[in-house]
Write a protein that binds this DNA or RNA. Structure first.
Length: 486
RNA sequence: GGGCCCGUAGCUCAGUGGCAGAGCAGGGGACUUUUAAUCCCAAGGUCGUGGGUUCGAAUCCCACCGGGCCCUCCA
C-alpha cells in the first residue's frame, strides 16, 4: 500500500464524517482527567465517570467490542467500546477512526478481567483526524535521519527519546533554580553583535537592512555579561543559544546552549566549588542520584571532584612535561613524536591544547577540573600571581568531553588591551578564530570591573553526561542537518 | 575536507547475478474483557538518483544525493 493511497483512504474517511455532519476538527473539548489522573482515581477505588482525551495509539477490534489505547502528555489509558453500550451508529463510526487520530472519550472507569484500568465508553468525540499513518507500533521509528528531521514522530514512537528531552527540560529548570537561589540575576544579552567575541570560534555573519550594517551572531555570552558586572550587578547569568560556524558532528551542533555566570568578588576557586555543588545537585534532582549510568559504568558527581593541573594531566596521559618544552620548536617536536598531526603555524599554546584534546580529554570520564592554563590560550583570563605564563582558569571534563570553562576574569583594562592586540596580530597572521579587539568592551573595563569569577557550561553536553547519550543530536530536538537533496 | 558503511512497501527488516519478500500499519471478512489480540482473504514497489558492465542488476562498477561512524577542526 503506497503512502498516497493510505492518505487517500484517510481523506475518504474525513469526507464520510463530514457527510454525516461530524466536524473532524472541533475547536474545543473539555476533558475532566488526564490519563494519569484517571488511573489515580481508579487506584483510589472510585468507579467514577471521566472524560479523557488523547492520540489513538492502538486499536483492538473484536466484532462488537473494541479496545482503543489513548495517549496524552501524562501517559496511556485504555478505553473500551461496546456496541450495546455506545449504540450501533456510534460503534460503526469507530471504523472511521485511524491510528494517530485524537479522540475524547467519556465513560465509567473499571478494570478488565486482566486488571487493566479502562474507560467504558458511553460516548466519544473525534478531536482531530490524522491524514498520515504513524510509525510502526512495536519497533518505533529507527531511521536516524527520519528521527531528526521529523522529531515529532520520534517523540511519538520512541518513549525513551521523550524521556531524554524531559530530562533536558528538568536540567535547565534545576540550573535556573540553583542560580536564582544563590542570588544570581538572570539577564538577556544581544544575539546580534557588531563584533563576536568571548571565544575562539568563527561566527555566522548576517546583515541588518535598516541599519545598513553587517552583524555577527554571538559565539559567547561573556563580554556583555562582564559589562553588566561593570554596571553593578554583582551576580549575573544567562542561559542562551550561541552560534559557531563550524563543522557538524556527534559532538558539535552549530547552535547550542550555554550557561554563563559572572560573580563579583569571586575567583576561579569559588567558581569550582559552585560548579560542583550545582552539577551534583542537578544530577540528584533529575536522576535521583549523584551517580548516573554511563555505558557499563557510572559517573559519580558527588563532590569533591578530581582536580589536576593541566601540566600534571598532560604529563600523566602523554608523558610530556610541557614545562620541559618552553619554546615552540621543542613543543612541536614533543607533540609530533606522539604521532599527533600538527600544523606548522600552531603556537605553543595551540600545541598544548592539542595534547590536552587528544591524550587527556578522552580519558576524563569522571568529573575532573583541569586547572592553570597557558596564558596564550586564555586572552580574557587573569594571570596567576606566582606564574605569569599561566592564568587562573579551569576546564571541567565529564564523560570524555569538555563541559565547562571558567576563570578569574581579567579586569586590568591595560593588560586586556595588550592581550587583544596580541590576538589581533594572530588574526592578521591568518588565525580566523583569534579574538577581535572589542573597543566598546575595553571602555567598559576602563570604567572599572571588580574582581570576578566567570563560568561557562555547555548545557547540551551536561545533558549528554546526565542521560548517557553519546551524540549531541540526541539532546537537541532539531539538530542541524544538510538540506534534503532532490 | 579524507576514509569506511548504509539507503528495498507508510514503518521495521530479509533478499549479494536468475520471477522483489515477511511482519506491522492499511482494505475485506469472523470474533462483546483485548493489550505486539487472534484467525481467514486480497492488495500494496521509481529496490535513493543517473550512468555503465552483463543474455540478465536490488545485487557488480562509476558518479551524484542523503544519512551514520571514524579521522580533521571547533565547546
Amino acid at each position: 500500500m503506497g503512502e498516497d493511497e493510505l492518505i487517500e483512504q484517510r481523506r475518504a474517511k474525513l469526507d464520510r464524517l463530514r457527510a454525516r455532519d461530524i466536524d473532524p476538527y472541533p475547536a474545543r473539548f473539555r476533558r475532566t482527567h488526564t490519563a494519569q489522573e484517571a488511573l489515580a482515581v481508579l487506584e483510589k477505588g472510585k468507579q467514577a465517570e471521566v472524560t479523557v482525551a488523547g492520540r489513538v495509539t492502538a486499536m483492538r477490534a473484536m466484532g462488537r467490542a473494541t479496545f482503543v489505547d489513548l495517549r496524552d502528555g501524562s501517559g496511556r489509558i485504555q478505553t473500551y467500546h461496546k456496541q450495546d453500550v455506545t449504540g450501533e451508529e456510534a460503534y460503526d463510526r469507530l471504523k472511521e477512526v485511524d491510528l494517530g487520530d485524537f479522540l475524547g472519550v467519556t465513560g465509567k472507569l473499571f478494570r478488565t478481567k486482566t486488571g487493566e484500568a479502562t474507560v467504558q465508553a458511553t460516548s466519544y468525540t473525534l478531536l482531530a483526524k490524522a491524514l498520515r499513518p504513524p510509525p510502526e507500533k512495536w519497533h518505533g521509528l529507527q531511521d536516524i535521519e527520519a528521527r531528526y528531521r521529523q522529531r515529532y514522530l520520534d517523540l511519538i514512537a520512541n518513549p525513551e527519546v521523550r524521556e531524554t528531552f524531559l530530562t533536558r527540560s528538568r536540567v535547565v529548570a534545576a540550573v535556573r533554580r540553583f542560580m536564582d537561589a544563590r542570588g544570581f540575576v538572570e539577564v538577556e544579552t544581544p544575539v546580534f553583535q557588531g563584533t563576536a567575541g568571548g571565544a575562539a570560534a568563527r561566527p555566522f555573519v548576517t546583515y541588518h537592512n535598516a541599519l545598513d550594517r553587517q552583524l555577527y551572531l554571538r559565539i559567547a555570552l561573556e563580554l556583555h555579561l562582564k559589562r553588566l558586572i561593570v554596571g553593578g550587578f554583582d551576580k549575573v547569568y544567562e542561559i542562551g543559544r550561541i552560534f559557531r560556524n563550524e563543522g557538524v558532528s556527534a559532538k558539535y551542533n552549530p547552535e547550542f546552549t550555554m550557561l554563563e555566570s559572572y560573580e563579583a568578588y569571586a575567583d576561579y576557586n569559588d567558581v569550582m566549588a559552585m560548579v560542583e555543588e550545582m552539577v551534583a545537585g542537578v544530577a540528584q534532582e533529575v536522576a535521583g542520584s549523584q551517580r548516573v549510568p554511563y555505558g557499563d559504568a557510572a559517573i559519580d558527581f558527588s563532590p569533591p571532584w578530581c582536580r589536576v593541573t593541566l601540566r600534571e594531566a598532560i604529563r600523566e596521559h602523554s608523558g610530556v612535561d610541557i614545562d620541559s618544552h618552553p619554546d615552540v620548536e621543542s613543543m612541536q617536536e614533543a607533540v609530533a613524536s606522539l604521532g599527533i598531526p600538527i600544523e606548522e603555524k600552531w603556537g605553543r599554546g595551540k600545541l598544548i591544547d592539542e595534547l590536552l584534546a587528544s591524550t587527556v580529554e578522552p580519558n576524563l570520564i569522571q568529573p575532573t577540573f583541569v586547572t592553570d592554563y597557558p596564558l596564550e590560550l586564555s586572552p580574557l583570563a587573569k594571570r596567576k600571581a606566582d606564574d605569569p605564563r599561566l592564568v587562573e582558569r579551569f576546564e571541567l571534563f565529564v564523560a570524555g568531553r569538555e563541559v565547562g570553562n571558567a576563570y578569574s576574569e581579567l579586569n586590568d583594562p591595560v593588560e586586556q588591551r595588550e592581550r587583544f592586540q596580541e590576538q589581533a596580530r594572530r588574526r592578521a597572521a591568518g588565525d580566523e578564530e583569534a579574538e577581535v579587539v572589542d573597543e566598546d568592551f575595553l571602555v567598559a573595563l576602563e570604567h572599572g570591573m571588580p574582581p570576578c569569577g566567570g563560568l561557562g557550561i555547555g548545557i547540551d553536553r551536561l545533558v549528554m553526561a546526565l542521560t548517557g547519550q553519546t551524540s549531541i543530536r540526541e539532546v537537541i530536538l532539531f539538530p542541524q542537518l544538510r538540506e534534503r537533496g532532490p
